[in-house]
């Protein structure tokens, strides 16, 4: 059996790698998929750390809904410039040049972090927490639920304001 630490290590390394892919991929669609993959690994890690409900939300909302938002945004945007093969290759080389410092930076940062480990200066008091999840959610955090409702309303108005006319114009063809 693998220990919790080993599983977390594997998951988090995979997560960082897919985040790196999301940033470095040439194609926006692939970036989005890599981002969703990052969310999936993160969700499993969250589950392993004893937060199954949050993991479900991470999986459904971040890996699901946000990917939908991104893909619909990408589909509304036509690819820029021509897509000839040599152009594509040149573009890819240019991107590689711009992003090659990032993995190097990450490796250096990783090594530095590994060498200069800092412990928490205190021991968190990990007593048995008296309240259950539903008590916290619906009693302690009741205002947050109201805040969420307000936030979702704001989001609805945002979509009405920012997306609406595009749909109308789309029906009438170009311009």
């Amino acid at each position: 059996m693998l220990s919790l630490g080993t599983i977390l290590l594997i998951l988090l390394v995979l997560m960082v790698l897919s985040a790196l892919w999301a940033v470095m991929a040439t194609d926006l669609l692939r970036s989005t998929i890599a981002l969703a993959l990052t969310s999936v690994f993160l969700a499993i890690a969250i589950y392993m750390m004893g937060a199954p409900l949050a993991a479900v939300f991470e999986l459904s909302v971040c890996a699901g809904l946000i990917t939908v938002v991104f893909i619909s945004a990408i589909s509304m945007i036509k690819p820029e410039g021509n897509t000839r093969k040599e152009d594509l290759a040149r573009k890819r080389r240019k991107r590689l040049k711009k992003y090659i410092p990032l993995p190097i930076l990450l490796a250096v940062a990783g090594v530095l972090l590994w060498l200069n480990r800092v412990d928490l200066p205190f021991t968190p008091d990990a007593d048995v927490f008296p309240l259950t999840l539903s008590e916290i959610m619906w009693d302690v955090r009741r205002v947050d639920i109201a805040g969420q409702a307000v936030m979702i309303l704001v989001g609805v108005f945002g979509i009405v304001v920012l997306f609406k006319e595009f749909v109308r114009r789309g029906k009438g063809g170009e311009e």
Binding site: R141, V143, D144, G147, Q148, V150, M151, V154
Partner: peptide, 8 residues
């Protein structure tokens, strides 16, 4: 809670 309303 402060964060939630800040974001609103």
């Amino acid at each position: 809670t402060l964060y939630v309303f800040l974001e609103v």
